[in-house]
Design a protein around this nucleic acid. Sequence first.
RNA 1: GGGCGCGUAGCUCAGUUGGGAGAGCGCGGCGUUCGCAACGCUGAGGUCGAGGGUUCGAAUCCCUUCGCGUCCA
Length: 922
Amino acid sequence: MTSSDIRTRFLKFFEARNHRIVPSSSLVPANDPTLLFSNAGMNQFKDVFLGNERRDYSRATTSQKCVRAGGKHNDLEQVGRTTRHHTFFEMLGNFSFGDYFKKEVIPWAWELITREFAIPSEKLYVTIFEGKSTPPDDIPRDDEAYECWRALGVPADRIFALGMKDNFWQMGETGPCGPCSEIHYDMGIAASDQGHTDCKFPCDCGRYVELWNLVFMQFNRDEQGVMTPLPKPSIDTGAGLERLAAVLQGKLSNFETDLFRPLIEEAAALANVEYGANHDADVSLRIIADHARSATFLISDGVLPSNEGRGYVLRLIMRRALYHGQTLGLNEPFLYKISSRVVDMMKDAYPELVQTAPHVAKAIKIEEEKYAQTTRIGIEKLNEAHVVLDSGEVTDFATWMTRPPSGRRQLTDTTAPAAPSTLGYIRGDDLFTLHDTFGLRPDFVEDMVKNYGLTVDRDGYEAEMQKQRERARASWKGAEKKIASPLFLKLAEDGKSVFDGYTQTKSTNCKIAALVVNGQAVGDVQAGAKVEIVLDHTPFYAESGGQVGDTGRFVAPGTDHEVAHVQETYQPVSGLIVHKAVAREGLRMGDVVTAVVDAERRDATRRNHTATHLLHAALRKTLGTHVKQAGSLVAPDRLRFDFTHYTGLGEQDLLDVEDLVNQHVLANEEMQTQVMDLDAAVNTGAMALFGEKYGDHVRVVSVGDGSYSRELCGGTHVRRTGDIGLFKIVSEGSVAAGTRRIEALTGTGVLDQLRRQTKSLAQASEALHAKPGELIEAIAKLSESEKKFRKEVDAQQMKNAASAAGDLVQQVREIKGVRVLVARVEVTDRSAMRQMIDDLRGKIQSGVIVLGSVAEGRVSLIAAVTKDLTAKLDAGKIVKQAATYVEGSGGGRKDLAEAGGKNPSKLDEALQALPGIIEQML
RNA sequence: GGGCGCGUAGCUCAGUUGGGAGAGCGCGGCGUUCGCAACGCUGAGGUCGAGGGUUCGAAUCCCUUCGCGUCCA
C-alpha cells in the first residue's frame, strides 16, 4: 500500500463517519505565538478545544504537516541515525469536539487498523492509563477504555496500563487534559536496536512501535492543579504516517518507505554513491532526504532562512543537510534538486506546494550558495586556528599543514580507520570562534583536520558554548514582558469601550466611565491634570495593528469648549480604549462629553493604512506569494512595512510595486468592510496575519471586489482608493536576514517631499549656475575639472618641492659630524613635503632634515633621519620637541616623523631652536 | 532579545604602539610573437560603508548608524 493510499484511506474512513476533511494548517502556527512550528494535528483546533472558538462541524479528520526541531525536545541529532526520527512528518488524526467519545473512537481505530489496513491483531498491543492517586492528582484508572478494548476481543494480556508519562496528556500546566490509549505494533526481533531476541512489551528497544495515540480530553485542570470533568469531553488522535507506511510496506525503517526512498536514491545518484554500501554515507543520505522535506515544506509555508526565530531553525536544518552533502562530495548546489523531488511526491496531498515551487527552489539555491561562501571564509580562518601538539608545542593550522610529512604524517599513513591517537588538537576556544563567528561546524572542522593527524578539543568548545548560552539567558531575563496593570484588567472586566469611529470622527453623548491618575482610579480631576480617560464609547482609534492611536479633544456637549486635550490613545488591555489627556476643566466620573478626533491627522493616517494594504498586495503580485507581513507602522506622516523576502529589491522591482499601487489608487476603487466569522473570511481568501490572534468575528477589509487585496484588519481606511492621492516609496532596506523594510508616503506627504526636493534642486542649480535638467552634467564636469586641477596642483607642488630641495641642499651644515638641514618651506601639501624630504634625503645621503611650513593657520613639521643614523637620532623625538614651540605635538618612526602645531608665529623660533635640540641628542 | 566578526581598487583580500593606502587577479597601452597563451615594461582605477568625536595627525582608537555574515535564546 503506498503512503498516498494510506493517507487517503485514513481520511476517507473518517469522512464516511461524518467527519469533515480539513486541510492541514500551515507549519507556522496561525494563532499560537508560543509554538515554533505546528507539531501535532490538534494545533489548529486548540482554540476549539479550549472553547474559545466554534466551527460549523464537530468532527474533523486531517493529515497535518508537522515539524519538530529546535525547542525543548530537540532530537535533531538523532535524525538519520535511527529508523524513526524525523524533522518533518505527517500526522493523521481524527477529532471530536464534544461529540463522540471513547465508545466510538476505540472501535473505529481498531477497525481501521485491523480491517482497512489489515494489520494482524496478534502483532498489536494496546495501552491504557493506570491512574494516579498521589496528591494533588486523584485520577482513576481508565477502566472505560479497558472495557472498550476487551469488547473488541483484545486479549487481557495484550492490554497494558501505563503511567502519567506515557498515557496522560495535557495541553499545558492548566486547561484540558485526559488519559490516552495507544496502539503499538510488534516489528519483530529484527527491529530491536539492542539485538534483543525475546524481549517483552513494552520494551523500548525499537521492536515495539507506537502506531496511534488516542487522547481522551475529559478533564480541565485549574491553577491549583485540581481536575474537574469537562461537560463535553473531546477526542484528539494522532498516527504518524511514516510509521504506518513502514508497517504496511513491511519495512523496518521509515526511511525504506516510498516517502523517503526516492529522495535517498536521488541524493545518492547526485553524489554518485550507492545507498547501503557505507554506514556513514547512508546516514548522510537519510539526513539529506529528511531535511529536504522540512526545508521544502517550511519555505512553502513562508519561512525563510534567517538568523533568528523560525528562520534560524530552518537554516540550521538546511545547513546540516548541506554539510552532509559536502561529506559526500556534493560541492555544487544540490538540495534544491531534491526539494523539487519532494514537491513532485507530495503535491497531490499538499497542492500548495505547486504554487510555491519556483520560490522554494530559488530560496534553497540561494541558501546553498551562501553556505558555500561561509564555508570558504571559515576555512581561511581555520588556517589561523591554534594547534596544540601532544609535545606541548603550539602552532597554527596553516603552518602545521606545510610541515614535511615526516613531521606529522606517520599516523595518518596507518590505514586503520579508527585510530584514536593523534598528534595534537585544535584549541577549543578557536573551535568555538570558528563556529560562533564564522559558521564552521565543529564536525566539519574535525573532518578537515583529521587527515593531518589532528583532532578537536570538544570540551573546550562546549565550555565556551555554555558561557554563550548563559550570556543569552541572563540578558533574556531583563526583557520580561510588561504585565498589564490590574486596574486596567478590572476596568476591562467591568465593561469594554465601544469603538464607533470607523464611520465618524466625532461622537456625542460619551460618558466618562473611568478616570485614572498615576495608575490610580479617581472620582474627579482638576483642570490641568494629566489623566487617562475611559469612555463608554469613543471614535478614538487606539494604537493597534501598527496603526498609531488618534489624538484630538473632548468638548462640552453642544459647544466648542474644550474640556480635555487627548494626546494619545492606546489599549492596555484588549477592548479597553484609554485616552491619555490633559484636563482643561475639572472632570468627574459620569460626565458626558463630545469626543472629537483630530480629523486631519486621522485622514492622513487612513491614507497610509489603505496604502499599506495596497503595498502588501503589490509586493505579493510582484515578488511572489512568499511575501508575508512581518511588521507595520501606520502613522499620519509615513508608513513603514516589513515583509519576508530573501533579497533586496531591485530598482525595477520598486518601480513595478509603486506603479501597481498607484494604478489602484487612480482606479479609485471603493473600499469594502465586512464583519464575518474567521472561517468564512479565510475561505474568501482574506489574508490573515502571521502571529495575530483573531476573535470569532473578524473584520475584513477589501479593495473593490477584493480580488486584488482582502485582509483581516481592524484599522481605519479611506472610502475610495483615490483618497490616497499618490503613493511614493522613499526607502527600501533590510531589518534582518530574510526581512525587508519599505517606507513610503502618501497624499500630502508626497507633496511635501516633492516640494522639499524641488527646492533643494533649485538651490543646487543656482549654486552651480546650471539649469535643473543639466545638473548631472554640470556636476560631472565640475568634479572632473576639479580632479584635473587638483592633479595639476599636486604635480606643480611636487615639482616646486624638488627644485626647492635643490636650493635647500646649500643650507646644510654640520653638527658634531652629522649633516643637518633645517628649513622653512612654502609647500602646503603634506604629501608634497614628504616628497621633498625624500628628495633631500637622497641628496644629502646621510644626515637629518627638518622642514616646517604653514598652511591654513596651522604649522606642519616633518623630520627625517637617514637609516645609518637612526641608532643615534630619533626623528620622532626631534619633531616632538620642536612641536612644543608651536603649541603642538607629534611623533612617528625613527626615520620619518611628523608634527603639527597651532601657533604659526612661533615656527621660526622652533626652527632656530632645532640645531640645538639635535646637538643635545648627539 | 544577547554576543562575536566583517565592510579598503572591478573581484579576492593585506594593512600592529595612530605618522607615506598596498598586493594578487582583472582591465588599458607598449614590447616579445605569424597569431594566441605565457612573459616583460607601463598605466588607469580609492568619499578606506556613512556620520560624529578624540588627536598636531585616524583606514587604524571611541560613539552613533547602515549593510552583510555567524552563533546562542
